[in-house]
Amino acid sequence: MLLGILIWAVAAITAALFLARPWFPAAVSEHARAFDSQFHLTLAMTGAMFLLAQLLLGIAILRARRRTKALHSEGNTRWEIAWTLATAALFLGAMAWSTPLFTAVHLGGPRPGALRVEALARQFSWNFRYPGPDGRFARLDLKQINDAGGNPFGLDENDTASKDDIVAAALRVPAGRDVELTLRGRDVIHNFFVRELRLKQDVVPGMLIPLRFRADVPGTYEVACSELCGLGHHLMRTVVIVMPPAGFAAWEREALAQLRQE
């Protein structure tokens, strides 16, 4: 009997904890806001199923001794067909409803005018490079990789396009502009995760994986590696800095000026 009450109590506390506060950080892109509404829709549906099941289980336990003799029944085909179809419709419906969110991120194709940036993940840090005014990423030569000397990508010095490739430790992007981020790894698998963008993508050595987003709220957002990469996994932090467009342009000018001096 006690168990019936306890089941109701833990179910109620579970629901209360989920609703206690907005657990997600503020969303900073169209995609992130769409993600939140899809998530909350599914959560409402699954939450209702969860509470209903626990409610029924609790009732069954509280009525444990109501009968002097159990009712004989071996099943009820009509009910079984009904709840099978209902669950299938709900589960697959939720999935179909959310698919456009996923395809928009991964199947949209590059958008014209997008800012192209390349990310490099390695044990245990991040680097980003911008193609510069020539719009061309320099060729890479693995033998020229020099982490201490500021060339983690291995930009090929013999390629003229390398002269204006900006390499930075944080990802700066202008607010309101499409970003085409290409993820590159060179040792083990890492993961690029920005909570506020509701985006997460593995970085796999041997693959170039595109990730598209457009942030619209300036601010600094932490990037946490989310695929176990070794003993420094938990230290692999960088930030995405979403800047007002004018501020971003100023930063880019300054970075290029510095490159020319070197």
Partner: peptide, 10 residues
């Protein structure tokens, strides 16, 4: 929730 690729993005 987890079975939806879109939710896995987070």
């Amino acid at each position: 929730l987890l079975g939806q690729p879109a939710m896995d993005l987070y």
